[in-house]
């Protein structure tokens, strides 16, 4: 059987992609856009980044790609903690990831990328380059 792969025509064009400044930081959105204790997905260059704002104001950025389901969904997971470690649970098969290290708390052989994040002038900024 021949398969025809269908792709959306409205894939982001290169010129639409938010690009990093010379210092590597990319502004994502005002911090108030993110409801406390939830996440959003940001496009940084070609990378999908899950950005979380915890109830206490802490911010975390990890890959949005769920390595178990291969869907780009981690920003839609429920936040919480396991024995004090802040984490997000994938909405697909519910594996939890440590927001500080990216390590999967249910299978420590799996780790997702963690990115640097900060707030400048009320805007959340993400950097893909290691600190």
């Amino acid at each position: 059987m021949t398969l025809t792969v269908l792709t959306a025509p409205d894939r982001p064009e290169l010129d639409e992609r938010p690009a990093a400044g010379p210092d590597g930081w990319v502004g994502v959105c005002p911090v108030t856009t993110i409801l406390p204790d939830t996440g959003v997905c940001a496009l940084v260059g070609d990378t999908q980044v899950a950005v979380f704002r915890l109830a206490d104001g802490d911010l975390h950025a990890v890959s949005n790609h769920d390595p178990f389901s291969h869907a780009a969904v981690l920003s839609r997971g429920i936040l919480g903690d396991r024995r004090g470690r802040p984490k997000v649970a994938s909405p697909v098969y519910k594996q939890s990831f440590d927001l500080r290290t990216g390590v999967c708390l249910d299978d420590d052989s799996v780790r997702i990328p963690v990115y640097r994040i900060r707030v400048a002038d009320g805007t959340v900024q993400v950097s893909l380059s290691p600190g």
Binding site: L3, V5, A8, C29, Q48
Partner: peptide, 20 residues
């Protein structure tokens, strides 16, 4: 306002691929 894939771009999730 929450019903979008990217908080900072109007594009949908570019990783979705389908067959018929």
């Amino acid at each position: 306002a929450r019903f979008r894939h990217f908080v900072n771009a109007d594009a949908p999730d570019p990783t979705l691929d389908y067959v018929r």
